[in-house]
């Protein structure tokens, strides 16, 4: 679904990378190029060199939902309802269809009680959940979550994971520092020094990381039982 060929952009240096549909976890140390890669996939930045296509299209031609790590950067509108409705309104969705869509996604995410709240009164974690709701309301072809779970507690992160599975986008790229979350994805890409060093199933990738802190904690526990 995602093809990168001879991609050079800032510190990124990708000779060839193919990521299929489904849920892919992007992992790696700070400053390894994860966010830069996600920005190229979202069309937020254009590559200096090389090609990147998503389902054969330029990234900017793909309907993408983006949720970044910094909660304050995700929200634009005054109330939660307006924030979640905004994408649908920009897309000229019929008015009668907007309210059920907004309430539906808020309800699925367990944050219906936030509906009439003003965005600036939300906690950091609540802002992340609202941003996810706004992205999911649009049923994107590509959903990108850039360390979104950083500001979520265990229960909220589990809700987000459940919702992603309930409302699956054809392709989900999730950058995370929670290796247990990464271990539940369909595949994992490990970035280091701007390059995708390992890519494959979680088992294949974490095999290479078994002696490091990046090995999933629940796998360590399971190996002791």
């Amino acid at each position: 679904m995602i093809y990168a060929q001879n991609l050079r952009h800032r510190l990124l240096d990708i000779e060839s990378l193919h990521i299929g549909g489904g849920h892919t976890a992007i992992i790696g140390p700070n400053g390894s190029g994860k966010t830069t890669f996600l920005k190229l996939c979202a069309g937020i930045e254009l590559p200096h060199h090389g090609t990147l296509t998503i389902s054969g299209k330029e990234p900017r031609a793909v309907h993408t939902g983006w949720v970044g790590e910094v909660p304050d950067n995700n929200l634009v509108f005054r109330t939660v309802y307006d924030e979640v409705a905004s994408g649908l309104r920009f897309r000229r969705t019929p008015v009668d269809d907007i309210e059920p869509a907004v309430l539906g996604v808020l309800s699925d995410m367990g944050i219906l009680h936030l509906c009439s709240r003003t965005s600036h009164t939300l906690s950091g974690g609540e802002k992340v959940l609202v941003a996810c709701a706004a992205a999911l309301a649009l049923s994107p072809e590509l959903l990108i979550l850039d360390e979104t779970d950083t500001h979520l507690d265990r229960k909220a992160a589990e809700i987000l994971e459940t919702i992603i599975r309930k409302r699956p986008a054809p392709c989900i790229l999730q950058c995370t520092q929670d290796m247990d979350t990464a271990a539940r994805a369909d595949r994992v890409v490990f970035f280091e020094g701007g390059r995708p060093r390992y890519a494959g199933t979680p088992k294949e990738v974490f095999f290479h990381l078994s002696e490091t802190e990046m090995y999933p904690s629940l796998w360590r526990i399971a190996e002791c039982i």
Partner: peptide, 13 residues
């Protein structure tokens, strides 16, 4: 307040 947010596993350690 959330000292580990945004850090990779090595840095958290």
């Amino acid at each position: 307040d959330e000292p580990f947010a945004g850090l990779d596993c090595r840095e958290k350690k």
